Lab assay of single mutants.
Amino acid sequence: SAVVMEEGSPGEVPVLVEPPGLEDVEAALGMDRRTDAYSRSSSVSSQEEKSLHAEELVGRGIPIERVVSSEGGRPSVDLSFQPSQPLSKSSSSPELQTLQDILGDPGDKADVGRLSPEVKARSQSGTLDGESAAWSASGEDSRGQPEGPLPSSSPRSPSGLRPRGYTISDSAPSRRGKRVERDALKSRATASNAEKVPGINPSFVFLQLYHSPFFGDESNKPILLPNESQSFERSVQLLDQIPSYDTHKIAVLYVGEGQSNSELAILSNEHGSYRYTEFLTGLGRLIELKDCQPDKVYLGGLDVCGEDGQFTYCWHDDIMQAVFHIATLMPTKDVDKHRCDKKRHLGNDFVSIVYNDSGEDFKLGTIKGQFNFVHVIVTPLDYECNLVSLQCRKDMEGLVDTSVAKIVSDRNLPFVARQMALHANMASQVHHSRSNPTDIYPSKWIARLRHIKRLRQRICEEAAYSNPSLPLVHPPSHSKAPAQTPAEPTPGYEVGQRKRLISSVEDFTEFV
């Protein structure tokens, strides 16, 4: 048969007729292969192709491409040299491709048809291009793949890379869960390890502090508590009631339409708007009261037996805890006409967050109470924005700035309102402590230090009264110190430094 060459192609190359033996071998191979691939376009007849790359030819070592076609129900084999250009295909004639002069020997084609199974398996396991790669995943090629499931790999992101949580363990979102698992493993320790309690022994800490320079003076030496005195035992138990972190309780009120001037209507609300609910979820963490331990979680007086509701929101960081007394989460009882059960919590909070959804101005004093010092007013606006402002009593104007209003988005509203309420509550605590000038409020841990110092002074006084020969370590507060001759004046800087060093040991009130 003659071949018409394309323009620009090399000279004529004689194409030899395939021997009958080659056709029989390739026909047997075509019957084993699956003929249901995917359909081509209507211009080209339905056909199945599979590209198999052999590394070497037997005796020649030339890479070839073998295409199996099922045109007219008769499979045909096409061998081509890759750099050459194939002729145009037609549905009426068999596929013809040019070969190099080196394939002119018909014996070479017979060798190609009689490829060993080793070469076929190696060509099938190679990388296939384009559409033949999808075909190689079918059941027909499963014989050339190794048996057994593939090893499982770690989760992959859409980009093909490992997620960040699997790369950096410290930033993994499941870090707290692993800590819980470690605690569970520790709890399952053997009885021999049960006595080993991690941490620092208080006796060891005391020993280090006792021999430090801070205890060089007799006034700073630790003293032993009497065991037989019940009054001192009660004082030590009272110390446990003062937490070592700051605590805040903040009221949250929802004002519906037409309720801006009605205290009873505001306290009777059992739910609010959708934006109000989203605002609550951002204030803190939802907790169930019956599962809380009052000595570990500050509840601000809420009952854990269901008297004040089942849930509330709280927030904490390293040095403070805040609980929100939310009116809509507290039960509304029919027998309580004046809502006294709610007001006994909300009316005693220094700061209230008022979500004013009424469309009218909310005035300070609508919720009557002796300790309502500051109101954080949240007014929802259009386009997911809110107006946040402050209202306070006249005696609080020096501590709280009420002249600045803020426009905040719904997303950042819980954070801004919480921070403003916490700052206002700190100012309210300082303002409330002014009624007792001898006990200015600095912080909870300073209050613990003052309680310890008062307890020490009482013990020293009782020891001096029981044994008059012992001198008083600290003179009583009601006694007057003996007159001392004025010492020589020293520079102001040295006096300030000495006073600062003494105050650092005794108390921190002056620095606050």
Rank of each mutant, 00 (worst) to 15 (best):
residue 218 E to C: 10
residue 219 S to Y: 06
residue 219 S to C: 12
residue 220 N to Q: 14
residue 220 N to H: 13
residue 223 I to R: 05
residue 226 P to A: 15
residue 227 N to V: 12
residue 229 S to W: 12
residue 230 Q to D: 12
residue 232 F to R: 06
residue 233 E to S: 09
residue 236 V to K: 13
residue 237 Q to W: 06
residue 239 L to G: 08
residue 240 D to S: 05
residue 241 Q to K: 12
residue 243 P to N: 07
residue 243 P to T: 05
residue 243 P to R: 06
residue 244 S to F: 12
residue 245 Y to I: 15
residue 249 K to P: 05
residue 250 I to T: 01
residue 251 A to R: 05
residue 251 A to F: 03
residue 251 A to D: 03
residue 252 V to Q: 00
residue 252 V to I: 05
residue 253 L to A: 02
residue 254 Y to W: 00
residue 254 Y to D: 01
residue 255 V to L: 03
residue 256 G to T: 03
residue 259 Q to L: 02
residue 261 N to F: 04
residue 262 S to F: 03
residue 264 L to D: 14
residue 268 S to W: 03
residue 270 E to H: 06
residue 270 E to D: 09
residue 273 S to F: 01
residue 273 S to P: 04
residue 275 R to A: 01
residue 276 Y to F: 05
residue 277 T to V: 08
residue 280 L to I: 10
residue 284 G to K: 06
residue 285 R to L: 06
residue 286 L to A: 06
residue 287 I to A: 08
residue 289 L to Y: 14
residue 289 L to H: 14
residue 292 C to A: 12
residue 294 P to E: 12
residue 296 K to T: 07
residue 300 G to I: 02
residue 303 D to Q: 10
residue 303 D to V: 03
residue 303 D to E: 08
residue 304 V to D: 10
residue 305 C to V: 08
residue 307 E to N: 13
residue 307 E to I: 09
residue 307 E to T: 09
residue 308 D to S: 09
residue 309 G to L: 13
residue 310 Q to Y: 15
residue 311 F to E: 06
residue 312 T to H: 10
residue 314 C to T: 14
residue 315 W to F: 09
residue 320 M to H: 12
residue 321 Q to C: 12
residue 324 F to A: 02
residue 324 F to N: 02
residue 325 H to A: 04
residue 325 H to V: 06
residue 329 L to C: 05
residue 332 T to I: 10
residue 332 T to D: 07
residue 334 D to Q: 12
residue 335 V to F: 13
residue 336 D to I: 06
residue 337 K to A: 10
residue 339 R to H: 15
residue 340 C to W: 15
residue 342 K to P: 06
residue 345 H to K: 12
residue 345 H to A: 11
residue 346 L to N: 05
residue 347 G to P: 04
residue 348 N to D: 13
residue 348 N to I: 03
residue 350 F to T: 03
residue 351 V to S: 02
residue 351 V to M: 01
residue 351 V to I: 02
residue 352 S to P: 01
residue 352 S to K: 05
residue 352 S to A: 13
residue 353 I to W: 00
residue 357 D to Y: 00
residue 358 S to F: 01
residue 359 G to M: 04
residue 360 E to K: 07
residue 361 D to F: 05
residue 362 F to K: 01
residue 367 I to K: 02
residue 367 I to S: 03
residue 368 K to Q: 15
residue 369 G to C: 11
residue 369 G to P: 03
residue 371 F to S: 14
residue 372 N to M: 14
residue 372 N to F: 04
residue 373 F to S: 11
residue 373 F to I: 06
residue 373 F to A: 12
residue 375 H to Q: 15
residue 376 V to Y: 01
residue 376 V to E: 00
residue 378 V to L: 06
residue 378 V to K: 00
residue 379 T to E: 11
residue 381 L to R: 03
residue 381 L to Q: 06
residue 382 D to Q: 08
residue 385 C to D: 14
residue 387 L to W: 04
residue 388 V to R: 01
residue 394 K to H: 12
residue 394 K to I: 10
residue 395 D to E: 14
residue 396 M to V: 15
residue 397 E to H: 13
residue 399 L to Q: 05
residue 403 S to V: 04
residue 403 S to G: 11
residue 409 S to T: 07
residue 414 P to G: 07
residue 414 P to V: 01
residue 414 P to K: 00
residue 415 F to T: 04
residue 416 V to K: 00
residue 416 V to I: 11
residue 416 V to E: 03
residue 417 A to R: 00
residue 418 R to W: 04
residue 422 L to A: 02
residue 424 A to E: 00
residue 425 N to M: 03
residue 427 A to H: 12
residue 430 V to D: 02
residue 430 V to S: 04
residue 431 H to I: 14
residue 432 H to V: 08
residue 433 S to A: 14
residue 433 S to H: 14
residue 433 S to R: 06
residue 434 R to P: 05
residue 434 R to S: 09
residue 435 S to C: 13
residue 435 S to T: 10
residue 438 T to Y: 07
residue 438 T to V: 08
residue 442 P to V: 07
residue 442 P to L: 07
residue 445 W to L: 07
residue 446 I to W: 08
residue 447 A to Q: 14
residue 447 A to T: 14
residue 449 L to D: 15
residue 451 H to D: 14
residue 456 R to N: 14
residue 458 R to G: 11
residue 460 C to D: 14
residue 462 E to K: 08
residue 463 A to Y: 10
residue 465 Y to E: 08
residue 466 S to E: 14
residue 467 N to I: 14
residue 467 N to K: 10
residue 469 S to H: 14
residue 469 S to M: 15
residue 469 S to P: 08
residue 471 P to Q: 11
residue 472 L to E: 15
residue 473 V to C: 11
residue 473 V to M: 13
residue 474 H to I: 10
residue 477 S to P: 12
residue 477 S to A: 12
residue 478 H to K: 11
residue 478 H to D: 15
residue 482 P to Y: 09
residue 484 Q to N: 12
residue 486 P to G: 12
residue 489 P to V: 13
residue 489 P to G: 11
residue 490 T to M: 10
residue 491 P to W: 08
residue 496 G to F: 06
residue 496 G to S: 13
residue 496 G to P: 15
residue 497 Q to I: 09
residue 500 R to K: 14
residue 500 R to M: 07
residue 502 I to C: 13
residue 504 S to D: 14
residue 505 V to G: 14
residue 505 V to Q: 14
residue 508 F to N: 15
residue 509 T to D: 11
residue 510 E to Q: 12
residue 510 E to S: 11
